[in-house]
Design a binder for these strands. Structure first.
Length: 393
DNA sequence: GACACGTGGTT
DNA sequence: TAACCAAGTGT
């Protein structure tokens, strides 16, 4: 009874003043029926996934980090390989950074991998291999925020706590017609409070995972099939025919365009790579040097030939390297990140292998060694475009 | 609290 | 195609 009172009082406190809000109230009986219906469906239809074979916190943790902003189908092969290479938290703590990044190559959001290892070292060195089991304890670890802490605490340690991810936002906003903007950080509190009241106290981990499976099947963002959903009877927005209004989410900004020259300098099978800065996008990655074309433009009417000439001059002035460059690709390579869109025109030139590289922040890498190094997708695109152009000659 | 941070897939 | 989505976190 206490939980029901809390549930209702929560809503009256946070919602009653809001204009136009119509509260959907669930009785304790409804909550119990929802749990039973959801968990029964989960028992019969849950996805079989590599990280669902046991409740080992290491397995749950690695999978949850990989799954951040990443689809299950993408994660599966990375997860399997990662567990082969780094089977325990101790192995991960001791891994060299190069092989760690190689194991993460192509997954994106690479700070996840670095935070993963930082947390592994925290567990091994500071906690003597013992995992924190509570949300607040887990959040002390690098890379673990409110969602992942809730997921690990509930799945690995059976703590009755919410794990609010994109699925939970979508599912519960539709079930309860919650119209708060899920893009706003403060909205998380509302969902956490609601789900902490509804979550199964006996099987919290299964409850959270069931919501995710629901959000990935009958309650997807688009092309959802609510009529087949096991919990459609509990779905108020469906009953009202307004499910397309949920979740409420403000628009994201468009990626900002950047035009670059990608500089391909080589000596036989050796290519000159620049090490990117330690912060910012694609931090620490080896990449062909990029020149922002904006920085080369003096007048709007500058031709591309003039810009290429200025790029040559900059390479000579900054790196003390004499180069003659020619254009490789007619159409720029396009690569879109969350907040940036890159258009890259490749410029090729040759360089003597014994050139003085002391003014250049990088090194030669032989093609034979490419497979040992982690490259970003945009670098892989540059290489593929270059190779294709060379072969067609 | 707004923004940075990767990549692949869908519409 | 531009826009949006996919098991978010750090600053």
């Amino acid at each position: 009874m206490e939980s029901l009172l809390f549930f209702v009082s929560f809503y009256s406190k946070y919602y009653s003043e809001r204009k136009g809000f119509r509260m959907i109230e669930w009785s304790e009986d409804t909550i119990e029926k929802f749990q039973a219906t959801l968990l029964d469906w989960y028992d019969h239809h849950k996805r079989i996934l590599p990280w669902r074979q046991d409740h080992d916190p290491y397995h749950i943790w690695v999978s949850e980090i990989m799954l951040q902003q990443t689809q299950v189908q993408t994660v599966i092969p990375y997860y399997l390989n990662f567990m082969k290479q780094f089977p325990t938290v101790q192995a991960l703590a001791e891994a060299d950074e190069g092989s760690l990044m190689k194991a993460w190559e192509g997954l994106g959001y690479y700070s996840r991998a670095r935070n993963l290892q930082r947390a592994a070292k925290q567990i091994v060195n500071d906690y003597h291999g013992n995992w924190p089991t509570t949300v607040s304890g887990l959040k002390e670890l690098s890379g673990i925020g409110p969602y992942t802490a809730g997921a690990i605490a509930s799945i690995a340690f059976n703590q009755p706590v919410a794990a609010i991810d994109g699925n939970a936002f979508r599912v519960f906003s539709r079930l309860l017609e919650i119209d708060d903007d899920v893009a706003k950080p403060q909205t998380r509190k509302i969902f956490e409070t609601v789900v902490n009241q509804i979550i199964s106290k006996d099987r919290p981990g299964d409850f959270n995972q069931a919501i995710m499976d629901l959000g990935a099947s009958y309650m997807t963002a688009t092309n959802y099939d609510t009529n087949q959903s096991p919990v459609k009877a509990f779905n108020q927005s469906y009953r009202d025919g307004i499910e397309d209004q949920f979740p409420v989410k403000t628009k994201k900004k468009r990626p900002v365009p950047h035009d670059y020259f990608g500089i391909v300098l080589h000596s036989d099978n050796n290519y000159l790579f620049e090490k990117r800065p330690t912060t910012g996008i694609l931090a620490n990655f080896w990449m062909f040097p990029l020149f922002d074309q904006q920085g080369l433009i003096k007048d709007k009417s500058d031709s591309e030939g003039i810009l290429i000439n200025r790029a040559e001059n900059e390479i000579h002035d900054e790196y003390q390297l004499p180069v003659h460059l020619h254009k490789v690709n007619a159409k720029p390579i396009t690569h879109t990140f969350t907040h940036q869109q890159w258009h890259i025109t490749l410029l090729e030139g040759t360089l003597s292998f014994d050139s003085d590289l002391s003014y250049f922040p990088g090194k030669w890498i032989e093609t034979a060694n490419f497979h040992t190094i982690a490259f970003s997708k945009v670098q892989q695109k540059m290489w593929a475009t270059y190779e294709k152009a060379v072969k067609s000659k």
